[in-house]
Simulated scan of single mutants.
Amino acid sequence: MEELKSAMEDHMEQMADLVQKLSAELRSGLRPAYDNFIGFFHAIDWREPWLMCLLGFHVVLLLLTIFSRKNINFQMCLFLLALVGVYLAENLNGFLGENWKSFAGQNYFDQHGVFLSTLWSGPLLFIAIIILINTLFSLCYLIVRWKKAELRHRARLASTKQD
């Protein structure tokens, strides 16, 4: 019984430490995350042509996604291409890390792929989420149309049986 009591006390101490650390982090607010983001933003030379092309590519892909929202088949192709782009990000990071001198002023491509995840995979995932949400709305609309048609059909059947 003493072992159980000791284990419970140890567990309560660990939980109290975790709560104390969490509350300390919450008290510090979002300032450290904001400072990291600003440091990341200023470390990049945004005037490099390949970065402008990358950002332009994402803007064009986003506009294409928005303007093709009624074409579900095309959206599914875009969705799959975006996810394939995210899947290939690790290989792309390795390739670009080896060849950065031919197109960039500095090596942005670290081992962990933070830069490429932020500027390549992040926007692609955002676009994939937009497509997914649009698809869910389209499916809801189709289900409502189908149910209305079913109810009209049942009403017609009921009216013909009464005649």
Rank of each mutant, 00 (worst) to 15 (best):
D110G: 10
E90A: 11
F126H: 07
Y87W: 14
L83Q: 07
Y87K: 10
F103N: 07
V84Y: 06
F79Y: 08
L119D: 08
L92C: 08
L116Q: 10
C77V: 07
W120C: 04
L61K: 09
Q111Y: 11
Q106M: 05
Q111V: 08
P123H: 11
L63M: 07
G97N: 12
Q106N: 05
L61R: 08
F67D: 01
S117M: 04
L92H: 05
F67K: 13
I72P: 01
L119F: 15
S102Y: 13
L83A: 04
F74I: 07
G85C: 02
V86M: 04
G94H: 13
L92P: 02
N71H: 09
L96D: 00
I72W: 01
Y108A: 06
I72K: 04
F67S: 05
I72T: 11
K101S: 15
N91E: 08
F67R: 11
F74V: 04
L124W: 14
A104K: 10
Q106K: 08
C77E: 02
P123G: 09
F67V: 12
G113I: 09
H112T: 14
W120I: 04
F79V: 06
T65G: 00
F95A: 14
V86P: 02
I66L: 09
A104G: 12
A104I: 08
S102A: 15
L62H: 02
F79Q: 05
S102T: 14
L124E: 12
G122D: 10
L81Q: 01
W100N: 02
N91V: 02
L96H: 01
L63Q: 01
F109M: 12
Y87E: 09
L61N: 11
G113A: 09
L88T: 04
N99G: 11
F103Y: 09
F103A: 06
N99F: 14
K101Y: 13
F95L: 15
S117F: 03
G85R: 03
M76T: 06
A104S: 14
G85K: 03
V86G: 00
A89V: 03
N93A: 08
F126S: 10
P123C: 06
D110R: 14
L80C: 13
Q111D: 13
